[in-house]
């Protein structure tokens, strides 16, 4: 019967078609399998390469500065009374590359002009800070004195890393970018001062200390990480340690802390506050 034959033909056709579709499917599956591994491995290799480059670039320290930090034109940062019972930094430009510092002009104004040469990594400076910082700061706040802090790095050999340079660079970074926080950060650096003979704090530990002092600034963090002001710090340290006028009376050589008031180097005898007071001829509120 013709009808039945046609059905048979149709069935055969349908079976053929199904087989063809199955073959096509298999071919597509094979092609996918053939291309899968090479393509995936390419993507993986590229991702690894990108990760390596990214890791390298992000770990790259920013270039160091040839200029000095701003607000330290004299190699130190100067604080005076803000006339409202507090202290404020005096803003200055920066020492330009291959230029020399401009000393602060102290007027003969009856005030005690206190200049301290300190190393953030020096235990004696830590002791000085703990004992006198508050008293000196209130003296400055009351308008009877000014304070000029010169951070220098002379104790790198006392640590297994150049911690002296790394910690005093923090002072330069903060003076440059956030001078209002300088005294707080310096104080926090002394409080967290590591023991001599150790590696000192890592850059991220230093950054934690700075954040703890209330200064959270990505630029400051970057400046700390790259030891941004190391060239200036090295030059300022050389200038300071080679200045014979800064050797305390009776001392063999320069050491920190060295305190100078109105040009006179403290001989480290007696109470420093008496020494400072002896230079004040103005009376409170006479300004």
């Amino acid at each position: 019967m013709p009808d039945e034959r046609q059905t048979k033909n149709q069935r055969r056709e349908a079976a053929r078609e199904a087989a063809r579709l199955e073959r096509e499917k298999q071919k597509r599956r094979d092609r996918l399998r053939r291309w899968l591994i090479p393509t995936v491995s390419t993507v993986v290799v590229l991702a690894i390469a990108a990760a390596i480059v990214w890791a390298f670039v992000s770990n790259q320290a920013a270039p160091q500065s040839a200029a000095g930090p701003r607000n330290m034109i004299s190699d130190g940062i100067l604080f005076t009374s803000d006339q409202q019972g507090g202290v404020a930094p005096v803003e200055t430009g920066a020492i330009q590359p291959s230029s020399t510092p401009t000393p602060t002009e102290d007027g003969d104004d009856g005030l005690a002009h206190i200049v301290t040469y300190v190393d953030f990594s020096c235990p004696a400076c830590q002791g000085f800070e703990a004992t006198y910082a508050d008293t000196i700061e209130s003296l400055v706040a009351s308008g009877l004195a000014t304070l000029e802090v010169h951070p220098i790095a002379i104790l790198d050999s006392h640590y297994t890393t150049p911690y002296s340079t790394r910690s005093n660079n923090v002072g330069a970074c903060v003076a440059d970018l956030a001078p209002d926080s300088f005294l707080d950060v310096m104080s926090a650096m002394y409080v967290s001062q590591p023991a001599e003979g150790t590696a000192g704090l890592t850059s991220s530990e230093i950054i934690d200390v700075v954040h703890g002092a209330g200064l959270d600034d990505a630029d400051v963090d970057a400046c700390i990480k790259s030891n941004h002001f190391e060239p200036w710090l090295t030059a300022a340290t050389d200038r300071t340690t080679s200045d014979a006028d800064l050797i305390a009376p009776g001392a063999q050589g320069f050491s920190t802390p060295t305190i100078v008031v109105n040009g006179e180097v403290w001989d480290r005898s007696g109470d420093i506050m008496d020494f400072i007071q002896s230079h004040i001829t103005a009376t409170p509120g006479s300004d």
Partner: peptide
């Protein structure tokens, strides 16, 4: 080799890099 042309090219680039 056909599917490997891209990885080979990338490998050449990376070698130069």
């Amino acid at each position: 080799l056909e599917p490997w042309v891209l990885p080979i090219t990338v490998a050449c680039y990376l070698t130069i890099a």
